[in-house]
Design a protein around this nucleic acid. Structure first.
Lengths: 124, 124
DNA sequence: ATTCGTGCAAATGCTTTGCAGCCGT
DNA sequence: ACGGCTGCAAAGCATTTGCACGAAT
């Protein structure tokens, strides 16, 4: 049976409290303050567990080569800025049931990734 | 200036001839027959060059943790089968200009990834 | 001749894993 | 007490990179 662990709760909480789609290390750095003994391995392990349980999502590898995680699992798309590396949410998403018919497949998850230059970088 | 190289042409040709969105190693294995001395590093290097030139695309990391490449750059979505690991094309895709307005961003590339069980695996 | 591309192998770096001890139940 | 969870460090593994040689212009 899965047990309660302060670290796991904190990792989930951290992920749910932010909208910047952090890497494992970003979560680690953040929580290191409350859990000085926290180890990066534990963060990775719990992110994997949480993904399997379906309470969080991997949203893809950012331009720096690191996986990004999202604590908000409503279907939505992600925009990766090629200049500053930020990851933003996009509300648009694909019509999944239409695609299920096209493929004759069963779709469990849809992730839409866009790449370009974000507004902030364009303004500079 | 970029030069003509048999290896680069072969890699591009291989990628354009197939629709299974191969990994670098799959391309390597295939071309190893015609180029016995071909090295995996060269395949990776050329895939990177071809991506930068925009003639091929990285499609995303498959469930086995390896990057998949696509020689067909028309906008389309990809479906990853969770059971057999295959990658299929989906013709549906997002309305990019609508999203550009939503974000005030400049979109260079859109990739739509779906995950689930493909028809073939469902039939079994 | 020059400069880019290749093959080989070593290095990189994110992520995973083994293990001994700890903590929640 | 049991079994999952942690911290630590070592291992894994896809991808990248340095270097000397070969090939294209």
């Amino acid at each position: 049976m899965q047990r309660f662990s302060k670290q796991r709760e904190a990792i989930l909480g951290n992920l749910r409290s932010r909208y910047d789609h952090p890497t494992a290390e970003m979560v680690y750095m953040d929580l290191k303050q409350s859990f000085p003994n926290l180890s990066l391995g534990t963060v990775y392990r719990n992110l994997a567990v949480l993904c399997e349980s379906g309470v969080i999502l991997k949203v893809g590898v950012s331009l720096d080569g690191k996986e990004r995680y999202d604590g908000h699992i409503q279907p939505h798309a992600h925009f990766f800025c090629e200049r500053c590396g930020a990851v933003y949410d996009v509300t648009e998403h694909l019509d999944v049931s239409k695609i299920e018919k096209e493929l004759g497949a069963e779709i469990h998850y849809a992730s839409n990734t866009l790449r370009g230059i974000c507004r902030e970088c364009l303004d500079k």
